[in-house]
Design a protein around this nucleic acid. Sequence first.
DNA 1: ACCCCGGTTGTCAGTGACTGACAACGGCGG
DNA 2: CCGCCGTTGTCAGTCACTGACAACCGGGGT
Lengths: 177, 177
Amino acid sequence: MQQAALELFTRDGYAATTAAAIAARADVTERTFFRYFPDKREVLFDDGQRLEHLLTDALDAGPHVVAEALPRALRAVAADMEPRRKSLAQRAALIGSVPELAERELGKLQVWTRSLTRTLTGWGVDELSAAASAEVAMAVFRAAFTRWVADGESRKLGDLLGEAVTAVGLQWGIAEG
Amino acid sequence: MQQAALELFTRDGYAATTAAAIAARADVTERTFFRYFPDKREVLFDDGQRLEHLLTDALDAGPHVVAEALPRALRAVAADMEPRRKSLAQRAALIGSVPELAERELGKLQVWTRSLTRTLTGWGVDELSAAASAEVAMAVFRAAFTRWVADGESRKLGDLLGEAVTAVGLQWGIAEG
DNA sequence: ACCCCGGTTGTCAGTGACTGACAACGGCGG
DNA sequence: CCGCCGTTGTCAGTCACTGACAACCGGGGT
C-alpha cells in the first residue's frame, strides 16, 4: 500500500487522492487500509518506526561515547536508506510540498530526537548535554539528507553525512580550542 | 470562540469536543466557525500569527546587530505574553497532551524560525549563521517559556528569558573564548 | 424614508477521513 | 472434518470541512 500511496500522491496530489483510491490500487478495502495505518498520512511514515529502532540500536551497539556513537547511529540509518534514494527523494519532495505532511514529519523527527536523548541520558549523560547532542545530530543528519535528495549526481548519503559530521566537528573544535 | 474552544477542550478533551459544540457555545453556527479558522486546531493557534509579526517587527525595530536584536525580539513576545500566563499555561498543557496539536505547534515554531532567519539574511547575515542564530533563539525562548508555564510561583517570563539568554551567552562566550 | 451594496452569517447538501460492530473467510492444529 | 483465531469485507454512522446560495444588516447616496 505504501507504494500505491506514493504513486497516487505523486501523480494526483495528496489532497486529491482518497484513502479509498489507495486501498483499491492495493486490492484491499478502505477499512483494511485504516487497519494498517491510523490515518492517511501515516502511510508515508510508518517505515520511520523501523528506522527509529535502527537508530537507537546502532547508538547502543558499540562504545558508549557520545562523539563516536552518534555518528555511528546516523551512519546506520544512512546505510539503510542508501539503496532507496529514488523513492525517498520522491517522498521528501511530497512532504516538502504538503504542509499537512511536513507537520507530521516534524513530529516524527522530534520523537527521534527524544529517543536519542533518552538513550544518552540512560548512559549517564546529563540531560542538557544529551538533548543538545541529539538535536545537533539530527540537524546534521537533516542537512546531509536534504543535500542527498536534492543532489543531481547521486553522491552517497554516507559521504555527505561524513562531511557534515566533520564540518560540525571542525566548527566545534575551533570554537572550543 | 478561542475562549469557548479552550474551555471545552480543557473540560471535555480535544477529541471529544466537536467544532459544532464550540460554535454553539460562541453563539454562531459551525459554518461560521470554519470561516474564521481553516480547521479545528487552528482555533488555538491563530493568535500566533500576531506574535510572529510582533517578533519580526521587534527584530527590525532597533540596531541590526544579531546578538542584540534577537533578545530584543524575544523580549517583545515575552512582554506580550506576560499578562496571559493562566490561559497560555492551559493552552500549553493541552497542546502537550494532544499529539495532533503538538504537531501543529512544531509547524508554527518552524515558521517563526524561518521568519527570523529570513529577516537576518535580509540584513546581510549569511544563511548558515542566520539559521543557527534563529534556531538558538527559538530554543532559548522555548526553554524559558516551558519553565514559565510549569512554574508554580509565577516568576516573570521576561526574567526567565533573561536568565536563559545569559546562560547561553556564557556558554557561548566560554566556548569561543 | 428609500434603495442599494458589500460584508457577515445561516442553511443545506455533499465529500471524505475515520470508527465500531459484526459477518465471512481461510489456513491449521486436533 | 471441526473448531479456532487472525485477517478481511460490509455496513452504518460520526465528524471535519467545503461550496453554493439565500437572508440579513449597517451605512451611504438620493
